[in-house]
């Protein structure tokens, strides 16, 4: 089962600079585990230590935000295309949780 994954600039240090990588898995969790096996450290940028999708990472299956498809439990099919985008967000006041959520 081949799933195409589009990798944002900020995560290409894990993929040897590749913009598109291929992975496998019948759920988003399985796919991310597969990607992490090939590109060590990748998972930690997408999933919190508690095992949830990072609030400030958007993952799309084809044209849908996975948050509307069951998040990490979202089902994948052969030929699906995954896009990962770091949320574009910020703001004037300290958003105390942001740093913690990002694990920085």
């Amino acid at each position: 089962m081949a799933i195409e994954v589009r990798v944002p600039t900020i995560l290409r240090s894990y993929t040897g600079g590749s913009k598109i990588v291929e992975g496998a898995g019948d759920t988003l969790t399985a796919l991310i585990d597969d990607l992490d096996a090939k590109h060590s450290g990748f998972k930690g940028r997408l999933i919190t230590p508690e095992g949830n999708l990072h609030r400030f990472v958007n993952i799309y299956i084809n044209d849908e935000d996975v948050r509307f498809l069951g998040a990490l439990d979202a089902k994948l099919n052969d030929g699906d295309s995954i896009t990962i985008l770091p949320a574009v967000a910020g703001g004037a006041l300290g958003f105390a949780a942001a740093a913690a959520l990002l694990g920085r």
Binding site: I10, V88, G90, G91, A98, L102
Partner: peptide, 24 residues
């Protein structure tokens, strides 16, 4: 990538820095 601060100076906040995801 632009945004406005509406009551403070035009300088990145800690939130802006933590969340900046487009290094280019």
């Amino acid at each position: 990538i632009y945004h406005s601060h509406t009551a403070t100076e035009a300088f990145p906040s800690r939130t802006d820095i933590n969340l900046a995801g487009e290094p280019g």
